[in-house]
Design a protein around this nucleic acid. Structure first.
Lengths: 219, 219
DNA sequence: TCCGAAGCCTACTTGCTAGTAGGTATGGCG
DNA sequence: CGCCATACCTACTAGCAAGTAGGCTTCGGA
């Protein structure tokens, strides 16, 4: 029904605003990730956070605002984690590799953040999804840039470059899906999963650039 | 606010049960796909369907049941469409190819069905997602079987076979994501999109089986 | 022509939860 | 000390939407 007692912050009094805001956001992420946006009640969030409901409204605003704040914070953390792992002077394949590893690492260590980002945010067709969709688009664009750099470095042909954005979208989706799959198979090391995806996408693209493409046998 | 007038069924009287059930399901898929499960109201569905609310309860049961019925019907249609396109005696790559084309064709022609399947069902953490998650798992298993057949036909090594399920998960996710991307780029022909994905995954896998893998340069 | 079943509706109840009104402690500071 | 801002709470209200009670027509068959 509700979240573990033990991790609930003890009811302390008169803490400064920043601290309370953090506690509330933490609680909100947990509750949203467990029940989804609509089934999460402000009452439960306030209970988990160890404050009363009006505090939430005073500090973070309405339910929508609160949710958006969660998304923004968690998405920011994810993007930061990825950005921190990537050095701009490395070749594109190594950049992608490090980015992927950071991504999977984030998923493994911040499950609840990941759930709220992946499952909840997209499905709510409101003002939220914009926030999240924008983030996702940013990720796709980033990957796209890598692919373009890669294709340009090799002998590119027009067909290949026009499709990098689609490939980036496919990669991001594959990463999300693979991350979910991985959550059910925790025995696989993170490095292994990352390398699977790396190979799948990067080498598939490599062939495409080389002109070694698969074509259906005529019917 | 609500769905187009013109496509709403005219208020006819005393139709047989099967017809009304179809109308209700059609309406429910539309409304669920537009507003999401929670924001969809039974009142709106009944209005769009051209019947009164108690009819829905009499024929399809509670809101959850109705939603599950939608999922089951639409998922069934999708799986049927894919199954119908695949001939079991073809080689695995051709099977995958035809399956992918059927999938993208479905997404293009049944947008609302796709939306309700992809966006809504998974995110609702209730009894529904089970229904849908099972479907998705079935799809992954199906693809996995193809990959295994393929890997076995070539010289397989253990590492490659142990990872086919993960690759299947990645492919399914890539397909979903690419489908979404494609909805925003309708100028691309279906065949092209399908071939991108086909190449990306199939040839990536091909390299993996051959032992031509990407590895990070030592740091 | 009577009767039951199937099709269908209007109008209600009810429960839940977002959001608020209006207050009480507590600490700092002039 | 006395004032104000900040931190915080216990109640409430209000409104939406799920689900239902109870009844009214129409059709087919005995």
């Amino acid at each position: 029904m509700s979240v573990d007692e033990q991790s609930r912050p003890p009811r302390v009094k008169r803490l400064p605003r920043e601290v309370r805001e953090r506690q509330i956001l933490d609680a909100a992420v947990r509750v949203f990730s467990q029940h989804g946006y609509h089934n999460a009640s402000m009452d439960e969030i306030s209970e988990v956070a160890g404050v009363s409901k009006p505090m939430i409204y005073a500090y973070l605003g309405h339910k929508e605002d609160l949710f958006a704040a969660c998304i923004r914070r968690e998405a920011g953390l994810l993007m930061e984690a990825i950005a921190a792992s990537v050095q701009a002077d490395l070749p594109p394949d190594m950049q992608l590799w490090h980015g992927l590893r950071a991504f999977f690492h984030f998923v493994a260590t911040q499950r609840e953040s990941w759930r709220v980002l992946h499952r909840q945010a997209i499905s709510q067709g409101g003002p939220f999804s914009d926030e999240l969709l924008a983030m996702r688009t940013r990720a796709i664009t980033l990957v796209d840039a890598l692919l373009v750099r890669y294709a340009t470095a090799r002998g590119l042909d027009d067909a290949a470059t026009s499709s990098t954005e689609a490939h980036a979208a496919a990669l991001v989706g594959a990463g999300e899906s693979l991350a979910d799959w991985w959550l059910d198979h925790p025995e696989i090391p993170e490095k292994t999963v990352a390398s699977w995806l790396m190979n799948l996408v990067w080498m598939g693209l490599g062939n495409l650039v080389n002109g070694t493409v698969w074509t259906p046998t005529p019917e």
